[in-house]
Design a protein around this nucleic acid. Structure first.
Lengths: 110, 110
DNA sequence: CACGCGTACTACGTCAGACATAACAACGGC
DNA sequence: GCCGTTGTTATGTCTGACGTAGTACGCGTG
């Protein structure tokens, strides 16, 4: 307990990932760790969820990718946000504010 | 525009419905209208979504149902929240607060 | 008096997203 | 020599929301 269920966040995985590459490219493993620490361990993304999100977003034109060999001898795939990705991110932020308002009408205050 | 996408609310349909029968039984059509007005037309639930939610929740023990002939000659299926349903609702409200906190870390303020 | 509209619900099928399970691969440390 | 960390990929499953369609009754209006 303390962690949130997956369905809840469904629809915002892409937004979360895009947020983390707004300021510069990053790669899967790093993003997953940053999600974990930023959310204070309340949300830990699954590898499959993460990488399938990348594939989906690349198909949708929200990210581009390139491969590079890291200094530690490992190959890495970096992801870069596109203009389309930025505009999608902004739209999702607005949608979030709407959605939040709606749901809060049906959720009792603690 | 103005209305919210379905995936976003996914996972909260049941919560929304349960909220509307917290204070007493209701039936599909009425609930759908109340969601529409309460959300200020920002969320309009589909019949299929609504009735499949009822089925699911009855299977899970969150609601009970009974049929009655309404004064207008139509049969109606009323749904009643159970104790399990109440406790599920409370859990979801708490989960919502957690989720909200998490997502807001990745969404830029308007 | 036929028709559409509001009420009330059901059946069947589709699709996408999140996840489970598993594997591959290279390095460091004990 | 094997485990843990880093880093990614493949394959398959399951559920929830929705599209499309149909049934059925009563009421008002043209």
């Amino acid at each position: 307990m303390g962690t949130i269920s997956s369905d809840v966040i469904r629809g915002y995985i892409d937004t979360i990932i895009l947020y983390l590459i707004l300021k510069g490219p990053s790669y899967g493993y790093e993003i997953s760790r940053r999600i974990k620490t930023l959310s204070e361990e309340k949300y830990i993304i699954k590898e499959t969820t993460l990488y399938s999100a990348f594939t989906r977003m690349e198909k949708n034109g929200y990210v581009r990718s390139y491969s590079e060999n890291a200094d530690n001898g490992k190959r890495r795939t970096y992801y870069v946000i596109t203009d389309e990705g930025r505009s999608y991110y902004k739209d999702k932020c607005e949608e979030w504010n709407l959605t939040k308002e709606v749901i809060e009408k049906f959720v009792e205050d603690k």
